[in-house]
Design a protein around this nucleic acid. Sequence first.
RNA 1: GGCCUUGUGGUCAAGCGGUUAAGACGGCGCCCUCUCACGGCGCAAUCCCGGGUUCGAUUCCCGGCAAGGUCACCA
Length: 544
Amino acid sequence: MDLNTLAERLLPGEYPALDTFEKQYPPRDLPKNAEVTRLAPSPTGFIHLGNLFVAIANERIAHRSGGVLYLRIEDTDLKRKVEGAVEAVISALDYFDIRFDEGAQIGGDDTYAPGYQRQRAHIYRAYAKDLIRRGRAYPCFCTEEELAALREEQTANKEVTGYYGKYAKWRDAPEEAVYAALDAGKPYVIRLKSMGGASHKFTFHDEIKGDVTVTENDQDVVILKSDGIPTYHFAHAVDDHLMRTTLVIRGEEWLASLPIHLELFDVLGFRRPKYGHNCSLMKMDGESKRKLSKRKDPELSLSYYRQEGYHPFAVKVYMLTLLNSDFEEWHMKFPDKPLEEFPFRIGKMSKSGALFDLDKLNDISKTELARLSAEEMLAFLKAWAADYGTPAQQAYFADEGYLLKVLTLCMGIGGKKRRKDFVTAKQAMEEIGYFFSGRTQRDDYRVDEATRNAILDGFLTTFSIENDAQVWFSNVKALAGSLGFAAEMRDYKANPAAYKGSVSDVAEVLRIAVTGRANTPDLWTIMQILGDARTRERILAARA
RNA sequence: GGCCUUGUGGUCAAGCGGUUAAGACGGCGCCCUCUCACGGCGCAAUCCCGGGUUCGAUUCCCGGCAAGGUCACCA
């Protein structure tokens, strides 16, 4: 069979010589050990924690090595396309500080453009045509039904499924049959003519997994679908070569198709990139664990964490602790060093999948938020409230001076006793609510009404906003003593039966009266912030 | 089911032939204390199982088992 004629029939027209692509996308001029990495999402627009996980690894490796991180949109499957998805992905990652140097950005136009695979269709076809001419690719006219039947037969015979060897019906089809099918207008795909053997195994060095055993590919995989668009495998080889990717970090679900990719790089005469297959983030699903899924775990989407008000820095710190296990210690030792200074290495990435741990994220969030200055905290809360806060919460920002005072005094910002009450912006905003609205009425006082009134009235007789913390508290203690409560905790503990309760019970009445909460930061401080009038007002309102 | 990968406390993990088997989160207890939060101290682990190799295996080898991934004209 004349392969040139066949190639012309299959992919008619002039295609540039492959050499022109080599010139159009020249090797990059980068420092010696610089790595070129990429993120290659399909445009579904949905991006979750697992994606961020891989994204951070790619970003760190590229930028720490003085290399390049680019974005490529794998839009070869129209069914996956969602409007506005690319913008959504870029914005979601930007929130977590992942910036691309080039690629499919809005308005992105660089040497290696376009970053959308659909726009590179002619490139893939040019390479496919060359493969056909060289006898390394051929058309296949099998219908989906035929393929399904084949799979069933193979399964029944306990054979490896797929289109290979003797099952590759069109691999060595006679010329007449091929042209007859073509003349009949039958749809076809272009498949790779694999030269591998399934009995051949070899070891391949994976940057994350180490040495892995790989079986040679013997599947005549589809490289061009019937619509002339490449499959992931083919586009991966062509693009990552032309875009001069040096290191492919991707999820371990790709490890199984690595043999295909290696054969593709080889047959195309491309130099193979390095690969690092990282384990995916897992989550518990009942008794078993499984990888994060966008369909099953919508609560794990990046937008969810943004909505909840997790600080992007905290999320990033958590991701980094999972990515490189010595990061946590480093960060504790040098809490003020920028994350970029951490010696991130791909070799330190774990070989097994980590379970997503919300407790850990929450703990990190608490300590990271507790490191912000009052101004930073205010800016963070303000940005969150603008997008997700209630109108009432947005009103907290009308008097920023007051809010700053709340944050500073109450949370001990700047002091030696810094509190760690806030996990998220959302929860922080709820937490400080009592400084703004009137307190919510509640009646779960643990003392009877008469005692409650006596405490409230008694407190007012000595209360003055001028009293310092010492005086204020000794007044509370005196009040407690006069009402039959132990003024000193240790007296109460020594002999609880001798008292109605302790100062803490008295303080609790006051606390609930003023804030509507049983647990708050230092009460004296709260009263100082509220001021004389509002404090008295709330105490009076709480009388039974 | 075939193939690949992984297997140290509830979770993330250090560890690379001899250790009291780090650390962090969570849990529990105590201290501090007007509550909570912070902080301090302490408690809880037969290193998946079975064989080897070795004077000695969590560490090396083999075999099980378990978990995860993958077997598309989806990526």
